[in-house]
Each structure stands twice: as structure tokens, then as C-alpha cells.
Simulated scan of single mutants.
Amino acid sequence: MKFVLEVDMAEGAVAKDAVGELGRILRYWAGNLKHYELKPGDGAEISDSDYREVGRWAVTETTA
């Protein structure tokens, strides 16, 4: 399996304060980790502090 977290840092709150927003995104995601099995197919959108979608995380299969 592979865990992928992708955030577009070009616009919105992340562009204005990358360190603060990425820290908030990672804390929020880590706090919600217990709600997921973390199996292939799991994932969700990632929002900044303005509630704009700025990315996505996902668990995927890996190919050998």
C-alpha cells in the first residue's frame, strides 16, 4: 500500500501562510486518522482554513 497526501500550495490560505496551513492540515488529518481503516480506496479531500479544497489524501495499492 501507499499513502499519498497532495496539497496545492499555489493559491488560497496555503499560498499566504504555507507553514501555518500545512501544519493545520497535518494536525487535522492526524486527529481524524482513527476514523479510517487506511486500506486501499480510502481517501478524502483536504481543505484549507478558508474551507477551500486544496488537495487530497488517499491510500492506494502499490505495484511491484
Results as ranks from 00 to 15, higher is better:
55 G>E: 06
5 L>T: 08
60 T>C: 10
44 A>E: 14
60 T>H: 08
54 V>N: 02
13 A>C: 13
2 K>Q: 06
52 R>T: 13
39 K>P: 02
50 D>V: 07
12 G>C: 06
45 E>W: 05
25 I>D: 01
53 E>F: 10
10 A>Y: 00
61 E>N: 13
10 A>E: 03
51 Y>T: 14
33 L>P: 02
55 G>H: 04
48 D>K: 02
8 D>V: 01
3 F>Y: 11
50 D>P: 03
51 Y>D: 15
19 V>T: 11
5 L>E: 07
43 G>R: 04
15 A>C: 05
14 V>N: 02
26 L>Q: 01
32 N>Q: 12
31 G>C: 05
8 D>T: 07
33 L>V: 10
64 A>G: 14
3 F>E: 01
52 R>I: 07
58 A>F: 10
27 R>Q: 04
17 D>S: 09
34 K>E: 14
16 K>G: 07
37 E>W: 06
44 A>S: 14
19 V>L: 13
62 T>V: 08
15 A>N: 03
20 G>Y: 11
52 R>H: 14
30 A>R: 12
25 I>L: 00
2 K>R: 09
40 P>H: 03
31 G>V: 06
33 L>G: 08
31 G>D: 10
60 T>K: 13
60 T>E: 15
64 A>I: 11
59 V>N: 03
41 G>M: 06
14 V>S: 05
22 L>P: 03
22 L>M: 09
16 K>W: 05
61 E>V: 13
31 G>E: 12
24 R>G: 01
31 G>Q: 10
14 V>D: 01
53 E>I: 15
14 V>K: 05
61 E>W: 09
40 P>Q: 00
18 A>S: 12
37 E>C: 04
44 A>Q: 12
54 V>M: 02
50 D>G: 10
24 R>C: 02
18 A>Q: 15
53 E>A: 15
31 G>K: 08
8 D>S: 12
16 K>A: 15
22 L>S: 00
43 G>Q: 02
8 D>F: 04
44 A>T: 12
63 T>S: 13
32 N>M: 12
12 G>S: 09
55 G>A: 07
46 I>M: 01
56 R>K: 10
16 K>T: 08
2 K>I: 00
23 G>M: 07
13 A>L: 09
11 E>S: 14
59 V>M: 13
4 V>D: 06
44 A>C: 12
23 G>E: 09
9 M>W: 09
59 V>R: 04
53 E>P: 11
37 E>A: 14
21 E>Y: 06
5 L>A: 11
22 L>A: 00
56 R>W: 08
6 E>V: 06
54 V>H: 02
4 V>T: 11
62 T>Y: 04
64 A>T: 13
40 P>C: 02
27 R>D: 05
34 K>H: 15
23 G>R: 11
60 T>R: 13
36 Y>I: 00
